[in-house]
Nucleic acid binder design. Structure first.
Lengths: 289, 289
DNA sequence: TCAATCCTGAAGCTATCGTTACAAGCTAGA
DNA sequence: TCTAGCTTGTAACGATAGCTTCAGGATTGA
């Protein structure tokens, strides 16, 4: 019989050959499997009411070199059990000829999206949506070197849904004039992932001093702006590339757009209809060219 | 702020106050959470590439008396996570109070991403990457009302990696001057999802007449530009919202960026280093403000 | 009852762990 | 450029873990 790599199976296989004291250890292990085995040998022995050598003898009987080996096996199992299914999804299309690099990349992105949703506080999401949906508030968006694209994306949609949306220019030297008009009714949305940008921090500082409400989209480590922010979205951004992936940020941005749109459906509807009309008009003009 | 008993939450709360080395530890912990923390402090430190005192400092910062305390907390969490019945582990993180709308949205996005990857022809992906990585080619990008953000995103990154990248202005009336310079060495990247834009089609027509190679990012139904394009990426964009989700387009764009970067690593490396230098210089300038 | 065998824990040893103290290195601001 | 403060790793230390040895105790069969 080939020896199973699963500790639980080995315990079952050897059950008949175990001594009473060893069985007590086995019981404790199985009661909170596999985490129970992840303490020190001393504590495990105490929990089972036996001595430490007994635990070692059990580990050896199961085919491990010693207790640390057994523990490593248990740790691997715990890890495998806890990992969310999407990570180890057997759903990855077989018979595909994607490069391993592409597959790794895609896997990482999925893990990031999942992890980001996992960390997102639903209540916080609601509050952000409420800010952005409030027509009385003025929304100002700003991003950094890379994240300006994300800011642009959110801006692009928000602007269609509601009035009073401004995208700050990437160059910081024109910001002061916008800062002039910021007050308690302003919602400042900042995108700042590593490497965090000093200018954005200063922007947040001044805006905060003027009582603006700050929404921050950042990475898992958190921009310094975090401590100035009223609402923070932490997105996972690491992928097997020398670039960071801002896909998770866009996911939340899109979800917010959908939510905001729902909240102010009546207003947005007419607004969009008017917009469509204008586009049609523009097109007519162009036909003359 | 009441201190959460969940290590993950504490990490998130403190994220902004962590030092770079501590962040590395945090990273390792979260990557295989919570099991990664169940080794010895030495191994954890090694895995994170830091020294053991750093791990202890992190543990203290999170409010634990020392590493063993932190580890005990992690073990409890691992135990709790594994004990929970297989609940709805399939797919959605358990015990979350997300609105159904948000869940539906996220589910749809995941389905879109998977479907998009599924439809993507690896060979085609490679050919597109080859075009974009070829320094002899000139890359021109253009998007529509919504997709200009996607074009901007790809532009933003490509520009850092390689020279000869141009983003067309959203206003079609300045396109002709760019069209003047298009030839067989030009790669024109067009983003066009419903509602497809006539201007983009004309742009493609003229570019095609001048022998430019055309790469098209579109939706599952296919923009009219398809018939003029040499390479087409069809992304799924439907979500339960009155908006379309361009997340799948960004996924492919990001994957392409990673691939292009890999292909021209040597060149890109020095280019990025020079860029970093310039940014540092700019910072020095800014200090005078 | 006795002897042979097996089971078990106490005691001690060594390697490793977790911790502390301190100094070098780095960064930010003047 | 220089200084103050922060960050980080090195080195040294007790404490603990994991392991070995060995002897007491239980069990079994004659």
């Amino acid at each position: 019989m080939k020896r199973s790599t699963i500790v639980k199976d080995r315990l079952a296989d050897m059950a008949a050959d175990l001594t009473p004291a060893e069985r007590q250890v086995s019981d404790v292990l199985l009661r909170d499997y596999p985490v129970a085995g992840l303490t020190s040998i001393t504590r495990l022995a105490e929990a089972a009411g036996v001595s430490t050598p007994t635990v070692i003898r059990l580990a050896r009987k199961l085919g491990y070199g010693g207790f640390p080996d057994l523990q490593a096996a248990l740790r691997d199992e715990a890890s495998a059990q806890i990992r969310t299914p999407i990570l180890k999804r057997d759903g990855w299309p077989e018979n595909r000829s994607d490069s391993p690099a592409f597959q790794d990349f895609a896997q990482a992105v999925f893990a990031n999206l999942e992890g980001t949703i996992d960390r997102l506080d639903p209540a916080s999401f609601d509050r952000i949506a409420a800010c952005l949906a409030d027509p009385a508030r003025h929304v100002v968006l700003s991003g950094g070197r890379i994240t300006r694209s994300n800011a642009d994306y959110l801006f692009n949609h928000l602007q269609i849904i509601r009035p009073g949306v401004t995208l700050l220019s990437p160059s910081a030297n024109v910001w002061p004039q916008y800062l002039l008009d910021m007050g308690p009714e302003t919602v400042l949305v900042i995108f700042d992932i590593r490497r965090y940008e000093r200018d954005l921090f200063r922007l947040a500082e001044i805006a905060k001093a003027q009582k603006a409400e700050i929404v921050l989209f950042t990475d898992q480590w958190g921009s310094p702006v975090t401590k100035l922010s009223d609402h923070v979205v932490n997105a996972l951004i690491e992928v097997p590339s020398s670039w960071d992936s801002t896909l998770a940020i866009n996911l939340i941005a899109e979800a917010l757009i959908a939510e905001v749109q729902t909240r102010r459906w009546e207003d947005a509807k007419t607004r969009i209809e008017r917009l469509e009309d204008m586009f049609k008009t523009t097109k007519l003009f162009r036909k003359q060219n």
